[in-house]
Amino acid sequence: MLDVLTQVAQLALNGIMTGAVLAMPAIGFTLLYAVLGFPNFAVSGHLAVGAFAGWILNTHYGWPLWAVVPFGFIAAGVLGVATQRVVVEPLRGAASITLAIASVAVALLIENALRFGFGNTLRSYDLPLARDVTIGALRFGPQQMQTAAVAIVVMLLLFALLRYTRLGRAIRATADNASLAAVKGIDTVAIARLVAFVGMGLAGASGVLLGADTAIDPLIGFRLVLAVFAAAVVGGLGSIPGAVLGALVIGIAEEVSTIVLPSDYKSAVGFLLILLFLTFRPRGLLGERRN
């Protein structure tokens, strides 16, 4: 009995660590949705770009993880602004669904560009190996703890930006009502680009953390994308605290599901939760009630 409890506790702990990393692209996805008004499926490609940018710096130039994360953020963020300008802005006025489909094509374009350059082989970051830490009966992987800590720092910075700065207020105003924000003199086009930078940057930074934790290939983001959607939908599409909560729920649910399901089906858990929430509570855990 105690064994089962320990096992569940260990899985829940792993789930929280997974959730912390998952929260970053989920925040990015939900932020992009709130401000730009369409589900931007290109987060998967930008996540992979961040992972590869970090990998180059880490393995070729020997940068440590903490220094590589901001670089992954910037690389994916800059690409995010570029796709915003080249693809999204010219399609302004098109239905949100058209933009969603276009974003799938963007992801395909980016992932294949990576495939062209790096091939399909799995690559790993060059990081010092460390022994697991045991507290009581629970095991903590130092690498995972480090990635979870970095994820938490990044999220705190984002919260501070949104909550306490003028810029953050402008972003929240645009998300609430873009035309009203424009009337008040906010440059909504510039805000949209900034959000593309931050949202895709978050995906890129999480790509670095994921890469440090496992291994990378051009489809690293694609494999995660279902969990990202699930986190955003469970938390409430458009809600940033919701995305964090949703990511933790998905992370824990995926890990605990391995008790009863083969681990190949981890990503099915996210899909199941999407269906359940859309059927019974479409605004998610923390989403606002709106149509």
Binding site: Y33, F38, P39, F41, A95, S96, I97, A100, I101, V104, L226, F229, A230, V233, L237, G270, F271, I274, L275, L278, P282
Partner: peptide, 10 residues
């Protein structure tokens, strides 16, 4: 409509 896109993609 966005939700149908997410669900079908998944």
């Amino acid at each position: 409509d966005d939700y149908l896109a997410i669900v079908t993609l998944g």
